[in-house]
Design a protein around this nucleic acid. Structure first.
Lengths: 334, 334
DNA sequence: CTGAAAGCGCTTACAG
DNA sequence: CTGAAAGCGCTTACAG
């Protein structure tokens, strides 16, 4: 049905080897012949079949991307940035999600690996449980952990935000707004992001003169933030600030507070983390740490390339710093 | 490096033909032999290389999905549903976005086609400009248009929401809330969704006793909704309702109104379309038409299968009806 | 029931 | 500079 390299070669009166060389600019070919082949290829509408190429070379031009949930605005934005960056290298992206479940994650990684992708970007579902699969696949093809990492530091390189720096910026801002007490509505220990943000907060809050009441912990979900409001209210007094572990939780908090007729920032200020669409869409806008996604994507692609060139070095990581994005949700002084 | 079918066959003392048959359950093989092959395959950690299979069969187990922008919550949700449904058939998804640009869309479709995917789901970027490429690729492999369609009704089957029905439900609800005047903050004629929603509104509003002021039209963007508020205010009187063409525009309206210290629903009611995460996250929640994504995904996959079985019939479509999701943004009677 | 062989489309040593 | 040939991993008529 579709035209193959052989068709082109025949029509041009050359061997398929020559045709291949012309179309890949791989070796010097008589200009005359080259031109003829190119013309024929064009007129016949030849398009390379990447399957044959990949099979032969044991290596495709596809890169895999695995995120927990593609419909989480943070991940859909991350995926888009990664895709853009990957395409600059002339590769294509195969995108998949793990739904945050270990067995799906394993399936995705094995499938991609068997397809001989050039490499995999993965946001591991779990800090500890995902370590094995990341390490296993990482031994076969280049794997880069993005946004989250697994417990085993020799599993694969990591690229992501500096959570501690982000939390520090948030605390400095809150302090400037006169915040004295805060409650962390955060993520549990399942993921590295959850761990790092929580421990940074615990460590740094005292330095900014902010007193933390008991955390409310769960997963990165809007519904969790929404419900957390009731939990906190049932305790009695509301703190000056509610610190959400990400934008999803934070917008959940905004919605929950509205449900209880509490005004933000008048009654309590709220912060998020990520700087997703949600933070811009919410009313009031969410103060949060904006992740430099382009930069992360760029670093991730660079990491993958470096991993391809000299494999075996897995215990390194790249962190980038986020920026404080100030919204109305913490405009306490006004 | 990785173990191939030949390795398995050798280790099991059979031909690769037999090994292949066992692993595919394709023909009767002596139970004894079959068991042995299976055992060997397992112990060697054999995993099929889909490249070889696809090359041989001229057909892979991959399905392509092309949406305009993956970071639009509606499309990321759609992609997730499609992926889930596609996997039920044992296929994998190759996801890509066109950024709403024709040349990228063309590149994506051609690339997928050259990879011999089993079929493509596409949300065409343009109503008229995308017609050619959809038709071209549709002649090669099964293509299903989802959510939007192109002008040429013989291009490819379509699966999506019944926009007219959705608009009617919205109008009925608004009428019940005592709305007499409304402004449509909508999408232009670039896409079929934009066209259909607008023309349905123009046609149906009078029947519900709702008077439309001049439309404000542009693309499906949060920023457009946000800015549209100024445009409308500069005209003078605010209508009873602002009807956003989708949730992105509608939440933009909410944010824009808040910026002008206008209260929703007190000063004006607002509606959206799609029922994305944004509609739930916004404060107040957005009244809108919720798209039955699971149902759409199911129908789309069924359409693809039917297209594979008997190709050539392109001029049919499946529409599903959305449901009215009532939020605080139209709670006028309260 | 099983195997030897062809062939999907491609690239790349190896000769010339 | 160019071509004949091997081979990537797989499936499937074709014989037996």
């Amino acid at each position: 049905m579709s035209v193959s390299l052989k068709d082109v070669a025949d029509a041009a009166g050359v061997s398929i080897a020559t045709a291949s060389r012309v179309l890949n600019n791989s070796r010097k070919v008589t200009p005359d012949t080259a031109q003829r082949v190119r013309a024929v290829a064009k007129s016949l509408g030849y398009v390379l079949n990447p399957l044959g190429k990949a099979l032969r070379q044991g290596d495709s031009d596809v890169v895999g991307v695995i995120v927990p949930v593609i419909s989480n605005p943070f991940y859909s934005a991350l995926v888009q940035c990664l895709e853009l960056e990957v395409e600059k290298c002339g590769y294509k992206c195969l995108i998949a999600d793990s739904l945050g479940e270990l067995d799906i994650e394993e399936d995705r990684m094995r499938t991609l690996s068997s397809r001989r992708v050039r490499g995999i970007f993965v946001v591991p579902a779990y800090f500890d449980l995902s370590a094995n699969i990341v390490k296993e696949i990482s031994a076969q093809i280049p794997v880069i952990q993005v946004d989250r990492r697994v417990s085993d530091e020799y599993a694969a390189p990591f690229v992501g935000i500096d959570n501690e720096d982000g939390i520090a910026k948030l605390l400095a801002h809150l302090k400037g707004q006169g915040v004295k007490t805060a409650t962390y509505v955060g993520a549990d220990n399942r993921t590295s992001a959850g761990r790092e943000r929580r421990s940074a907060l615990e460590q740094l809050a005292p330095k900014y003169g902010i007193q933390l009441t008991a955390h409310v912990l769960n997963r990165f979900l809007f519904s969790f933030g929404f419900e957390a409001v009731s939990t906190i209210l049932s305790r009695g007094e509301l703190p000056d600030a509610l610190i959400g572990a990400d934008d999803l939780i934070a917008t959940g908090l905004l919605a929950g507070l509205a449900e209880h007729n509490l005004m933000v920032p008048r009654d309590v200020v709220v912060t998020g983390f990520d700087g997703t669409l949600l933070s811009e869409v919410s009313v009031p806008r969410l103060t949060c740490i904006k992740q430099p996604l382009e930069q992360i994507a760029e670093a991730a692609v660079a990491a993958l390339e470096s991993q391809r060139l000299r494999p075996g070095q897995h215990n390194w990581s790249t962190t980038v710093k986020g920026t404080l994005q100030i919204g109305g949700s913490t405009a306490r002084s006004s």
